[in-house]
Structure formats: C-alpha cells, structure tokens
C-alpha cells in the first residue's frame, strides 16, 4: 500500500488479471448453461410451447428488440420514479423520526404496520383510485423500497457518536454545520445500504405491479405473452427483466463507488 491513496493511484478503466477472471468465469458459466439447455431440448425434442430453446428466445429478442426496449423503458421509468420518490420521502422522514420524539412514538409504529402488510395487496385499491396507469406502478414500487431505506437511514442518523458533537461545538460549529460536515455524511453509508436493498425490492415490485394493473412494461408484456401461450416471448421478457435488474444494481454500486470513495477497498 502506497501512502498516497492506493485506490486513487490505480486507473479506473484498466482491468487487472483478477478483475478479468472475475468477468470471464460467470460469462463462461452462463454460456455453458445455455449450451447444455439448447442441446438437451434438441435431443429430447421438447415442444416450443413447453420450453423454448435459448436460440429461440435469444433470436426472438433480436427480432422483437423494439417491443422489448419500449416495455423495458416503461418499466425502468416506473422504477426510477418510485425509487426516487422513496428516497426523497424516506431519508428526510428518517431524520425527522430520529430527531423528534413525537414522530418516533406516533408515526413509526404506523409505518411498521404498513410494512408488515404485503404491498401488492394495495394494488387493486390503487387501481380503483387511479385507474390502470403508470402512477399505480410507481406507487407500488415506492411502497416496496420505502421501508428498507427508511430503517437504514434512521440507523445512519443515529450512528454518530454524541461526543463528536462536543468536538464540533468546541469548533464553534452550529447545528447546520455539524449536520452537513458530520451527521449527514456519516449517515451515507447506512442510507446506501438501505438503497441497495431498496433497488432489489423495486425491481421485484415493479414486475408484480405490472402483472396486476398495467398496460405497459415488461410485467405486462410477460402477462400478455402468457395469455397467448407465447413461451418464447415470455422467456425474452424474463431475460429483459433480469437485464434491467442488473443495470439498476450496477448503477447503484457505481454511484456508491463514486459518492463514497472512503469505502473503496474496505472489506464488507
């Protein structure tokens, strides 16, 4: 370890042998899995309506790429809106609950109760209120990822050792300075932990929400394909959903890496 910031000294793009290996192994594993699938389905002559071959749904993804992209885009927009709304509400609310005793005693039990309730149950009610549209999807995504972000943010705002405030007060810091320089950045690690769980929940929630009440999105596409017994399209939708999930998880990790350079290289 060099003294002048080991992670900063390393170029961000260049891959080390170890990183390359980390990339190659899963790719080889997936290719082998798909190859085996292809061979077995051909040998056993499984009908298309029961289980399509990888060559079927992969080529379908190429043919119908415009349709898949359009639906994936709709799903992605729902995730972004619902997730952003959850962060925008949960983080300030966590601070309020931690800071104000009345909120802690009054509001928190209500939120815990709402969390225990399966979120998708609210779907049909929301459809009555708002009709079948994207707002319902966004609200369900919001409900799915709101709670983990709230709970972890609360832990984060409580994480600062109170004696640290003695030190900031001895520096003449006012409440805002102590918050900006100490409490908020200290909470970031926790907020991000909550957001990482939240984004997984959001991707999970968005598809279920689109199953229940939507006229767009990958969940809607899969549901429609199901009613036409179009297995190839369903598998294409499944792969597309997995890709959307990967993009969002990757974006979260990249944001964390960028915003919290101090955690780089630290074991988890």
């Amino acid at each position: 370890m060099s003294a002048s910031g080991e992670s900063a000294a390393r170029p961000a793009i260049a891959l080390t042998g170890e990183q390359l290996a980390r990339l190659v192994y899963p790719v080889v594993a997936v290719a082998a899995f798909l190859g085996l699938w292809e061979v077995l389905v051909r040998i056993m002559d499984v009908p298309l309506w029961l289980l399509p071959k990888p060559s079927d749904f992969l080529s379908r993804m190429v043919v119908d790429h415009a349709l898949l992209l359009e639906q994936a885009w709709s799903t992605a927009v729902s995730i972004v809106l619902g997730f952003a709304l959850a962060v925008a509400v949960a983080v300030p609310l966590a601070l309020a609950i931690v800071s104000i005793g009345t909120f802690e005693r009054g509001l928190y039990p209500v939120i815990v109760f709402l969390n225990i309730m399966p979120k998708t149950v609210i779907g049909p009610i929301l459809i009555v209120w708002f009709g079948v549209n994207q707002l319902v999807i966004v609200l369900i995504v919001f409900l799915m990822c709101f709670f983990p972000i709230l709970v972890d943010s609360m832990a984060g705002f409580r994480a600062t050792d109170p004696r640290l405030y003695y030190i900031t007060r001895s520096m003449g810091a006012n409440t805002w300075q102590a918050f900006r320089h100490v409490r908020l950045p200290a909470a970031m690690t926790f907020v991000f932990a909550g957001m990482k769980i939240g984004i997984v929940k959001a991707v999970e929630g968005v598809i279920i929400a689109e199953f229940i009440g939507s006229s767009a999105g990958l969940g809607f596409l899969i549901m429609r394909a199901s009613s036409f017994m179009d297995q190839t399209l369903m598998f294409s939708g499944l792969i597309a959903t997995a890709l959307v999930a990967m993009v969002f998880n990757g974006a979260m990790l990249a944001t964390e890496h960028w915003l919290m350079p101090w955690a780089r290289g630290r074991g988890h």
Binding site: R163, I167, S170, M171, A173, H181, V182, A186, W262
Partner: peptide, 28 residues
C-alpha cells in the same frame, strides 16, 4: 472554542482522510 479535545476513542470521521479530518477545524 479556544480549545482542542481528544477522547479515548479517536472519533475521526470515517469518510475523511487523516489530513481532511484535521482540516475540519479549518473548514468549520
């Protein structure tokens, strides 16, 4: 404010480098 305080725990900010931790005094 004409004072420096050290506790048993270092109470450094984990998100700042050693130098930036010290320079918190300057910033605030």
């Amino acid at each position: 404010t004409e004072v420096g305080i050290v506790f048993q725990d270092h109470l450094l900010l984990e998100f700042r480098t050693a130098m930036k931790n010290v320079m918190l005094q300057q910033e605030i």
